[in-house]
Structure formats: C-alpha cells, structure tokens
Design a protein around this nucleic acid. Structure first.
Lengths: 333, 333
DNA sequence: TTGTAGGCGTTATCAA
DNA sequence: TTGATAACGCCTACAA
C-alpha cells in the first residue's frame, strides 16, 4: 500500500527542489531542458498527479462552476447542460447543476450554496425575470453568463441566446407556405426572455402576411391541465383555424394528441410546428416539424465566454445570437 | 471591498482561539454554551463560510463523487442522475457526471480523470460488462456502488437494481391478461445486466403460460435502423403475433410508429407494453403502457450506501433490489 | 473548557 | 537556472 505522492516526493526523487518541480509541472518560469526531462520521468514513473485542494487553496480558485437551470427534464435545457459540462470537464472544471424548478426562493438558496462552495463562475439558463446577481452580497462578485435570460446588469457579463425571433418567423412562414390562412400561436402562460421573442416573431410574420395579431383570436394559452377541453372550445369559437405554431415541442406534442382526440386530422385539417426539435418529434404521429437550436454552438460559446470572464480576458457587455434552423416534418406538410 | 473572512478573523472578532471556532463550527469537542453563542453570532454577522479547499486539503477529502453513465440522453439514466445529484448536493457533495457513450476507452479515460480529481466515491450506472475498478491502480481504492451493473468484485461494494425480472414478468402477464395468445419480446442487440433479467422474466412468464420460448419465433432484435422493415418481415413470417413486450420505452415507441406505418392497429391487432415509463409514453398515440422504476428510491439507496462506504460505516457485499410497478395505458388494453 | 502550534500540498517571492 | 521559505485556511493532538 504505497501512499500518494506529493510534489515533495517528486522533488526528492528527481533531486531538485519543490519549486523547480512546480515550475516544470506548470511550465512556468525558467528551468533547463535537462531538469524538465528528469522531473517528467519521475512524474510518469510515480503516476503523480496534483492535489487540487492544495492548489485551489493556494490560488484561491475552485475550478468549479455552477449552473442554474429551471427544469432539467426539459430536453433543450438538459441537452445544453450536458454539452456545457463536457466542455468544462475537458478544461479541468467541475460543474454543479442546480435545478431551480422555477422557484425564486430555491434559486436564491442555491446561489448561496454555490457562493459558499467558492465557485469560480456561474451559468444561468432561462428563467422568468432578469437575472440579478446583486442578490448576493459577496465581496468579489462571481463572473457569470446568461443563456436565454437577460441579465439585470449587462455591463460585466455576456448574454447568449438562440435567434428565437427568427425561428418564430420561419416557423410561421412555413405554415403560410404550406397553405395556412389562419395560423395561431399556442403558448404557456409563463413568460420568459425566449418566449417573448418567439411571440414577437409570430406577430411580425402575421403582419407580413397582412394579418393583425389579436390576442383573443390568434393566441391560445395552454398550461398542462385541460388542454383538450380548452383547445376544443377555442376551435369552436374560431373554426377557421388551420395552423398552429406551438412555442415549444412539449406544447406541440400536447396539442397534437389533443387534436387527434378532438377528431381533427393533422396536417390535413390543421398544420402544426413546434420549437426545440425534441428527439420525440420523430416518434409522434404524424412526425412533428420544429425549429432546431444549435446546442453545440450555444454550449461552446457559453463556456468560452465564461472562461474568459474568469480569467479577466476578453470583452464583456456583449449579446450573442446563435442562428436556428427549420426542420420540416409531416405535421406541417 | 471587504475581503473574505477566515476562521482566524472569526476567532479574533469573538475573542476566542481558532481551535474553539473550529470546534463550534463542527460541533466537535467541548465548549461552553456561552462561547458557542458568541461565535455563532459573529459567524452570522460576518456571513462567514468555510473554505472547502482548505478543509478538504487538511482532511484529505474532496467532497465530490463521480458518476459514470452510458447515455445521459436516456430518460431513466438522466432521471436517476438528477435525483442522485440533488441528494448529494444537500449533503455537501459535488457531482461529476461522465457520459461514457458506452465506449470502454472513454470510460477508462474518465476514470483516470476522476481519480486524479480525488473523488471520494464513484457511482456506476449500467454498461455492458461487469465493472472492474482494478483497472485503476490507485493506492487506496475508491469506494463505489453499481446501479444495474454487476461489479466484478462484489466484496467491497453494493449492487443496486430495480427488479427487472419481476417487471418483465408483470408486463408479459398483462399482455396475456389482455387476451394475447402469442406475445413476443422486442429488444436491442446490446446486452446489459438489466436487459438479461428482463429477457429471463419474459421467458419465464411464457413458460407459465405453456409457451416455450423460441429465439426465432418469440424474439425480435431491433436496433435503431430499418425498424419498420424488419418488423414487417417478422410479422409476415409470424402473422399470429398479437402482443409485444419491448425491453424499453424507446424501442416500444419505435415499434409503435412502425406498426402504424405497416397498417396495424394498436391495441386492437397488436398490444404493446414497454419498460421505464418515459414521460413521452402519455403523448404517444395510443398512450403506452409501461413498467415504472422507482427512481426516487434508487437514488436514495444509492447515495446512502455510497456515503456509508465513504465513511467506512455500514455493510458491503450486498445486492439491493428495488420493486417496480405496472402502469397500464391504452396500448395494452 | 480553551489555546498553541504543526502540517496538509501548492505556488510565489526573494535570494543565491 | 535553481532553492529555501512563507502563506493559503483548516483541523487536531497536545498542553494548559
């Protein structure tokens, strides 16, 4: 049972001082090629690796970042979080995921825990209100970036977001192009940064097609209960409806099965398109058209910017918009 | 810009020694009620919190655990991981999630990274082969528990698993009870600890109903490509088939849409039941019957056992089986 | 009941 | 180019 090696052991074994070993390890400072080789051989032979607790203590870093996410069971969120985590891991960072369940109190509690864990940075995904880190009265504020959620103080952070507006425009246009005359939007009652952009895109696409958006005629609000009933009532009042842009795929799927129950045929009677390109879209019947967000790019851009903020390099105050793409399937043919 | 407080500051502010402060914080050792109050007040006033890097360094712990998971986009895995993470977070542990993508090389690479990060414990979820931690030649071996994956050396670990066998028996029986005469099982070609138990359950349920399992007549293997074509061929050869037990919901959903394309009616012509109770089950058409795993319990038991292993309390060498439950929906009525 | 002091593994400053 | 050493914040024998 050989104990773990420390930098001191490596120093002794290779006949140099700890300072030199540290310099070789971090490729920092000056040393001869000869000593580098000597030291590196010993490191390999002993299978030494650095103790991060010690390093972090000394450097006053934790190499961990927190992620605040409203609902990890949502496909888009889960997907982005997973990709962020992978990229961060490669760079030596650990990730602490906090599912706030859209609860402000929970969010604050998590924030305090994260703060006390000494995270180096924070990623905030979506959520109802603008994100206000000043709720924490930490001496030195934690660098953070926001995805799909406007920060209250844009000065020292970066705001990253898909082009929700453009996605909504394209989705709505695709309904018109498929022959729809009276499309509506289906949304939940929650508002968020991304959903309001999507709504705006829908309205503008309507306007381009000479329809004036009317809240009671072009917009149905559906939360998870009573969807079939509400939809049925709405359709009886507005029987001319022939297209639905659902603000996300979860709602789209719900609408789809509600329509089947009501006895409507999709896409013959009514066409549907969603948003997010959930994997289940290809298993619905009919398969669901959608707008795909570029989660790879979102994750990469997010991490790049956060690391820059942590290292005090790069620019802040930016807003970065990531393009989306239209995925045509059966439901809007 | 007030700097961060350390235990030394708290000591000075409350007029006691650092040792006493430490004792109060950890409720460890003896001290008077008076000093406790004094110290705790100062801690509250200063909003002090402990520096974990220092604590971990001193105590030779990291308060972090790794999770090896084959595919985080799978609902069951994601669900369990999320719940484990939440429970661990409450206990002060960070979680490092590693998506191995069922790749042995990746798994080993991740293991080494985790080892070098100094994790206190490891959770291993599913995977093809028995888990062999001896691939790592760490001096002190890392405590670990396995979910749905047999450990190579059962002595020093705990094996946790749903009752896959019983679930498969109940699923198959429910098909018989719904009137099926010739049920088959649909599986992927991968084998895993859980899938072989499910297969065994299916076979035994068949036997109980006086059918001898025959690989070519009662078993169809479907991977993600060509599902509709393969299923169609199989059904032409075996037209008497009237029930399908899919080894998981992902396959079940695929089978369902394939059947609809072929022109079969579910559940009239063929009944289906899956396994895992994915959330999408209630959005398929018809809704999908399934076997539900108790992820809350799995997560809790897993964490409890791992923490015990880390603290050298509790028993090892155990296998723990968690009950499952049948969820009847339209597809097997 | 409380205090003193050493040491965990690193990095960085200062000398050599 | 290298080495000695202080310091990071904490816990814990040992002493008082």
């Amino acid at each position: 049972m050989n104990k773990k090696y420390s930098i001191k052991d490596i120093a002794k074994l290779s006949g140099v001082s700890v300072a030199t070993v540290s310099r070789v390890i971090n490729d920092n400072g000056r040393f001869s090629e000869e000593t580098r080789k000597k030291v590196q051989k010993v490191i390999r032979d002993t299978d030494y690796h650095t103790n991060f607790s010690a390093k972090n203590l000394r450097m006053n870093k934790s190499f961990s970042v927190g992620i605040l996410v409203p609902d990890i069971s949502n496909y888009f969120f889960a997907n982005v979080v997973q990709k962020i985590e992978k990229i961060l891991f490669k760079q030596g960072y650990s990730t602490i995921i906090c599912n706030t369940a859209r609860d402000e109190k929970k969010e604050l509690a998590y924030l305090k825990m994260l703060e006390s864990k000494g995270i180096d940075g924070l990623i905030v995904i979506s959520g109802a209100k603008a994100f206000d880190i000043s709720k924490l009265k930490t001496p030195q504020k934690i660098p953070f970036v926001c995805i799909d959620r406007e920060p209250k103080d844009k000065q020292n952070t970066v705001f990253i977001s898909s082009d929700h507006y453009q996605g909504a425009v394209e989705a709505t246009n695709s309904l018109f192009e498929a022959g729809c005359k009276f499309p509506i939007i289906a949304s939940h009652s929650r508002t968020s940064s991304s959903s309001s952009y999507r709504l705006r895109g829908f309205k503008d696409a309507l306007a381009k097609n000479n329809i004036t958006y009317n809240k009671s005629k072009n917009h149905i609000v559906l939360d998870s209960d009573n969807i079939t009933k509400k939809l049925n009532q709405f359709l009886e009042l507005e029987p001319q409806i022939d297209g639905i842009f659902a603000i996300n795929d979860s709602i789209a799927i719900n609408v789809l099965s509600a329509l089947l129950k009501i006895g409507k045929s999709v896409p013959k009677d009514i066409k549907i398109i969603g948003f997010d390109n959930d994997p289940q879209d290809i298993h619905s019947y009919p398969t669901l058209s959608s707008i795909k967000q570029d989660t790879d790019k979102i994750a990469q851009v997010t991490v790049d910017n956060l690391i820059n903020l942590i290292n005090h390099t790069g620019i802040t105050g930016e807003s970065i918009t990531i393009p989306v793409s239209l995925i045509q399937r059966e439901s809007s043919k």
